[in-house]
Design a protein around this nucleic acid. Sequence first.
DNA 1: TTGTAAGCGTTATCAC
DNA 2: GTGATAACGCTTACAA
Lengths: 331, 331
Amino acid sequence: MPSIKDVARAAGVSTATVSRVLAGSDHVKEETRQRVLSTIELLNYRPNLVARSLRSQKSARIGLVVSDIRNPFFTAISRAVEDAAYEQGYSVLLCNTDEDPAKEELYLNVLHDESVAGIIFSPTQQFSARLSTFKSDIPFVIIDRAVNAAQADMVLLDNVAAGYELTTHLIQNGYTRLAGLFGNASTTGKERNKGFRKALEDYQLKPLAEQFIPPRIQQGYETTLMLLDQPNRPDAIFTSNSLLTAGAFQAIRYRNLKVPDDVALVGFDETTWGALVDPPITLIAQPTEEIGRTATELLFQRIEDPGRSPRTVILKGKLIARGSSAPRVNK
Amino acid sequence: MPSIKDVARAAGVSTATVSRVLAGSDHVKEETRQRVLSTIELLNYRPNLVARSLRSQKSARIGLVVSDIRNPFFTAISRAVEDAAYEQGYSVLLCNTDEDPAKEELYLNVLHDESVAGIIFSPTQQFSARLSTFKSDIPFVIIDRAVNAAQADMVLLDNVAAGYELTTHLIQNGYTRLAGLFGNASTTGKERNKGFRKALEDYQLKPLAEQFIPPRIQQGYETTLMLLDQPNRPDAIFTSNSLLTAGAFQAIRYRNLKVPDDVALVGFDETTWGALVDPPITLIAQPTEEIGRTATELLFQRIEDPGRSPRTVILKGKLIARGSSAPRVNK
DNA sequence: TTGTAAGCGTTATCAC
DNA sequence: GTGATAACGCTTACAA
């Protein structure tokens, strides 16, 4: 593997000149530039990024810390971030915390030690609480989950509005005995719950149940079974993320109940299966491409200008009404 | 951020000694070691990984290059690899090539430039052809897809056997007019096709159709529509990966046909939705955890001993028979 | 416009 | 056992 020295020697210039050519500096004679360029080509030279990082104390890598890579929402986000970063010549280190604050801390350290230029992440609730004490020298952008400390760039969904819209949709379609399953790992579940409540209040209804549980298929399954087995069974179930939706759907199926006649089901996030099951699932689709892209852009801007005042971008979800919440037929 | 020099100064030793303590060398007096250790603790020192990489010409990072992060198979693999790598103190750089040889080449370069210690990847077919010319100085392990060059460690599924088993299952359940959708991006589709053919031959049947198409939901959808609209409609559709399965399922639904009465459907890989749809999908589940873990272990072994002779690990898939291929009722 | 040389934070090779 | 010190490959003042 040739180094910058080899190129310099072969081109009959100093390493500084090669470096200048690499950096696209104007202060190089065109003739010299060409000679260096063709030598680079000839030797098939590629700069050593590690050495460059060490010297310049930064790198063309960003970190993406997600809480669950099995959640299709985060898969979609990572695609978007990767594409956006790639366009800027950056590569992405993807880390998965499993909603575990210990892993979260670990990976933030790893990323720091790898001297990434910045981090995009969705913190656990425990972490959010400590965020104010987390004096990081690394620029970062929060996605998906609000944190208290206003001193951070964020890209969020308007979760309250989304929860409200989804709930209103159910109510307007004739459902009145609503139960909600909300993820307990982040603020997202809380906010969607707030919208859920607000809608019920506005229609002078009371929630039949509000369960805050770990955002996992298994938990959604078990909790839904429990809800379905109660004497006063809900006629609609609201779930605050797609893993809970999947679990709820399984449970409804397991109890041989029909969607939406026996119980309607709505949730969040477009998934492969949401449109495949019968009936397809009504949901709020998040603009994942836009979220990932915006977060990446915000991060680059902050890297560029660490002093700028933090901004929060709030995006709107889109209601996709499908069979799982079809207007209730009177019986 | 304190450096090794700061630690050395504070502990009253040289940087060499600190480095020795860090490396766990025996040749340090216990007393000195303790002093250094507590100084490290005190200053909250953490070694600069970039500098370490530069000096030692290697890093505690491995690359994972997958062809489609939206494919649940690869999501599962990346979880397994990450966990296994993490246990060894390695972090994982995840790259997504989108089955694009250009991106593939780019990411291999990126990983090389980041001086990863090794790479696990699933090459495109185009790449496999060039693999023999790809004299890499980086240890690597191939997963999921066989390559011609025997000079590589590989972790593969016994795809021919899996295809055979899945097809036999259909035939034994009374299906005779079989069509197959196979991914054209890798050897995997080809091998599963081989098993498909073999089974048909053994039962003296002829395939109704064999389509080699890009492994995408949309392609699976379109091709299935086409198959369903033919005069001699298949009574069972074999798909060689879960994206094609999803597309086929959509198409069958769109044509208002019933699974499995009108047409049975089988595929590969456990997904969230496979068990959620009605009827649930019969499939060959791959041992993703084991594949990822084995690949990681092989990689570490090769990093350890670059000269060892390459080995190929072939794992068996597991048939999960469900409603989508229930025994055919005579009409 | 170009070259010289210092230095980024480590590890490793010598000495002592 | 421990300490100087030279590298690793690059960028960037500062000189020329």
